Amino acid sequence: MVTPNTLPPNTNSDDDESSPASVRAAPTSTLLLDAKRKSAFLPYRPQSTVLTNLQRGNTEATFCPVEVTLSFHERAGQGEITEDQVKTELGRHQNIDFKDAHDFTPLHWAASYGQLNSVQLLVSAGAKVNSLAPDLISPLLLAAAGGHNEIVRFLLERGAHSNHMDIVGNTALMYAAAGNHPHTCNELLARDLDFSATNENGETAYALAVEHGAHLAQALLEQYMTAILTAGTFGGI
């Protein structure tokens, strides 16, 4: 196995944007299976949420009392679940992979929003790392799309299928490459996955990085390809 070039240490997600404190939108698929689709690659990106003045903290709650009740799935996406809450939900549903109205599990929510602690609690409670949402979306694909490299590493260590494809053939590496998440790409490439895999449009991870102007991911993939060619050249001597 060719080991990709080591990147500078990174203990955070490739996505440096701060997570909103408001109720999050479900990690619903944006992939539309119709004749108008121009590309097989349409990333699964959680919708942004506009914060109100109250949610930003600009207005005191006493002047505008608002009660927001979050579901367990939403709390998992916010990173606000505890071990006791997980046990309670497990006892209530007999399965921690119970799905919301969009057929996403709590693990899908936590992986999509980069909540490592939630992911760890859920997996410890028996959440299946390869559970599928609509369009064959796995938690690994959502984590890779968001550049949450620590979660990607954790899921892979717990048996997530690195070469799993969504309904149109996109892999976790394709999502990470197109999203310009080099550390996430590095985690995936370390698993000796199929670098040449293509989606239904014949696009590879490298082609998607170029197409989406993902220069950091593109550079990493080029280094990886160079390492493979170099290893092959010296290996034949």
Results as ranks from 00 to 15, higher is better:
residue 105 T to N: 06
residue 107 L to H: 03
residue 109 W to Y: 09
residue 110 A to S: 15
residue 110 A to C: 12
residue 111 A to M: 01
residue 112 S to A: 15
residue 113 Y to K: 01
residue 115 Q to T: 03
residue 116 L to F: 10
residue 116 L to E: 07
residue 116 L to A: 12
residue 117 N to F: 05
residue 117 N to I: 05
residue 118 S to V: 04
residue 120 Q to R: 15
residue 121 L to P: 14
residue 121 L to V: 01
residue 121 L to W: 08
residue 121 L to Y: 06
residue 123 V to C: 12
residue 125 A to L: 09
residue 126 G to E: 04
residue 127 A to I: 01
residue 128 K to S: 13
residue 129 V to S: 02
residue 129 V to Q: 01
residue 130 N to D: 15
residue 131 S to M: 07
residue 133 A to L: 01
residue 133 A to Y: 00
residue 133 A to F: 01
residue 133 A to T: 00
residue 134 P to L: 13
residue 134 P to H: 09
residue 136 L to A: 14
residue 136 L to S: 12
residue 137 I to Q: 10
residue 138 S to H: 07
residue 140 L to Y: 06
residue 141 L to V: 02
residue 142 L to D: 10
residue 142 L to H: 01
residue 144 A to P: 07
residue 144 A to S: 15
residue 144 A to D: 05
residue 146 G to C: 06
residue 146 G to Q: 11
residue 148 H to V: 05
residue 148 H to Q: 11
residue 151 I to A: 08
residue 153 R to T: 14
residue 153 R to S: 15
residue 153 R to D: 15
residue 158 R to H: 15
residue 158 R to P: 04
residue 158 R to M: 11
residue 159 G to W: 04
residue 160 A to M: 08
residue 162 S to H: 15
residue 162 S to V: 15
residue 162 S to Q: 12
residue 164 H to P: 05
residue 164 H to I: 06
residue 164 H to Y: 14
residue 169 G to M: 06
residue 170 N to E: 05
residue 170 N to T: 04
residue 172 A to F: 02
residue 172 A to P: 03
residue 174 M to D: 07
residue 174 M to C: 14
residue 176 A to V: 08
residue 179 G to M: 06
residue 180 N to F: 00
residue 181 H to P: 06
residue 182 P to N: 03
residue 182 P to E: 10
residue 182 P to M: 02
residue 183 H to R: 11
residue 183 H to D: 14
residue 183 H to K: 08
residue 184 T to S: 13
residue 184 T to Q: 07
residue 184 T to E: 07
residue 185 C to L: 06
residue 186 N to G: 03
residue 187 E to N: 08
residue 188 L to P: 08
residue 189 L to C: 11
residue 189 L to K: 05
residue 189 L to H: 10
residue 190 A to N: 13
residue 193 L to W: 02
residue 195 F to A: 11
residue 197 A to W: 01
residue 198 T to Q: 15
residue 201 N to C: 12
residue 201 N to Q: 13
residue 203 E to W: 14
residue 205 A to K: 00
residue 205 A to Q: 01
residue 206 Y to N: 07
residue 207 A to E: 10
residue 208 L to Q: 04
residue 212 H to Y: 15
residue 215 H to M: 09
residue 215 H to D: 15
residue 215 H to L: 13
residue 219 A to V: 08
residue 221 L to H: 01
residue 221 L to Y: 00
residue 222 E to D: 12
residue 223 Q to T: 10
residue 224 Y to T: 13
residue 225 M to Y: 11
residue 225 M to E: 13
residue 227 A to V: 12
residue 227 A to N: 12
residue 227 A to Y: 02
residue 229 L to Q: 10
residue 233 T to S: 09
residue 233 T to W: 10
residue 233 T to L: 13
